[in-house]
Every structure is written in C-alpha cells, then in structure tokens.
C-alpha cells in the first residue's frame, strides 16, 4: 500500500507523538511550520497543545490563510484536543484574537471537562474504529457543544460529543497519540489515501 505524506502542524504541542503514531499507522510523516511545507503534504494533523498559542503562531507566520484554503479544497485534516478546536468553525468562548482554521461545522467549548486536576482517562467506543474501545486520554479537554447537519458524532462521553467527522475532516477531544493505540491515526491515514 502507498505511504501517503501526512504533515503535522509543528508550531507547538505534542508533535513528536503524532509523527510517531502516523509512521506506525503506515504514513510518511512530515513537520509543517511554513506555508511552503504545507504544499508537500496530502493530509495534515493539527496536534494537541495550547490552542491560543497555535492560533497566534499560525497567524503570525502566514499559515492561517493557506491552511483554510487547503482544508476548503478538500485536504484531509485531523485534530486532537487543541487541534479539534483549530478545526472548529466556532469556539464558544474564544480568547481575544483567537482564530481557527475551521472546516467542521461545530461549536466547541474549551477546557470543557475542567482544569488539569479533572483531566482523566476513560475507555471510549468510537464509530469507525474496530476492535473495542479506544483509550481516551482527556487533558484539559474540550467537548463539542453542538454540531451542524453534516457533522457526524463518532464518540460521546457523558453525553458530549468527543469525536466527530465531517467528510474529509476528523477531530477528537482526546489524545490517541499519547497511547500505543494507533487505530485513530490508521483511520485518518485511510481517509488521506481515499482522498488522493
């Protein structure tokens, strides 16, 4: 099978874990920090990290417009935690000047599950991921407050959507990259192959 080149937005966050998970899932991972590096990838992961920081750096280094363009043009993208926030059309309580790439018709609530003391692990059943529940690692995690008609909820926790898909875009509130379980990255790699 072909190894699609999948970028990881490497401005800030747990980039290394996503690069490793993508390699394990059969993709060729590449760090993306500059607009021209975005041209070399068939799909993009927006990692976990601090969403305000990633947003500011993306704006400062001229990545926001090309990211929006590629996502609107059909490039598959997957975001975990802060990455989920970056792929949301709307943030419920954005900080001043906090912009998102958008693409998924949903409203997300930042730090919805609480502060670090409330961060938790729990098993989560996820549609499209076979072989039992995934280990959900939720760290100051967001949840999806509401979704549009085209957005499909793949997993919920305590009644809140925590994994969603809209066509070529995938997002999880939890961090599969922190576990040894690469099934979510394998799902995304299949999405990138299918879009090629």
């Amino acid at each position: 099978m072909s190894e699609p080149t999948i970028g990881v937005l490497a401005l800030q966050g747990d980039v290394r874990e996503h690069l490793a998970a993508l390699a394990a899932a059969g993709a060729r991972p590449l760090q993306v920090r500059r607009p021209q590096e975005l041209e070399d990838v068939a799909g993009l992961v927006v990692p976990g990290g601090e969403s305000t920081t990633i947003s500011k750096l993306a704006t400062a280094f001229g990545l926001m417009a090309p990211l929006r363009e590629r996502v609107a043009g059909g490039m598959p993208a997957y975001g975990s935690c802060a990455g989920m926030i970056m792929l949301a059309d709307k943030i419920l309580d954005p900080r001043s000047g906090q912009e998102t790439v958008g693409g998924i018709d949903m409203i997300v609530r930042r730090n919805a599950f609480g502060r670090q003391n409330e961060s938790f692990e729990a098993a989560v059943e996820m549609a499209g991921v076979d072989g039992g529940p995934v280990e959900g690692v939720f760290i100051r995690a967001p949840w999806v407050e509401s979704t549009g008609a085209a957005t499909r909820t793949l997993a919920s926790y305590e009644g809140h959507p925590v994994a969603v898909r809209q066509g070529h875009l995938l997002a999880t509130a939890f961090h599969p990259e922190l576990t040894g379980d690469h099934r979510v990255h394998a799902l995304f790699t299949r999405m990138v192959r299918a879009a090629a």
């Binding site: 800030q12 747990d14 059943e125 961090h175």
Partner: peptide, 29 residues
C-alpha cells in the same frame, strides 16, 4: 456491553499518562 452510541467507563484522574501528557502539550512553548 458498551452501548452502541457511547460508552461512559469510570474516569481515572491523576494518572501518570494524564500528568506527563499535560507536559507533552506544552512542548515547543
């Protein structure tokens, strides 16, 4: 058996993965 729509297993807080994982999110910052 987990429900078809969602599962709500008991959450575990303060695990090593959650504590160390928090610092992983700060990397590059």
């Amino acid at each position: 058996p987990a429900s078809s729509e969602s599962s709500a297993a008991r959450p575990e807080t303060g695990t090593a993965r959650v504590k160390r994982g928090m610092a992983e999110q700060l990397k590059g910052g």
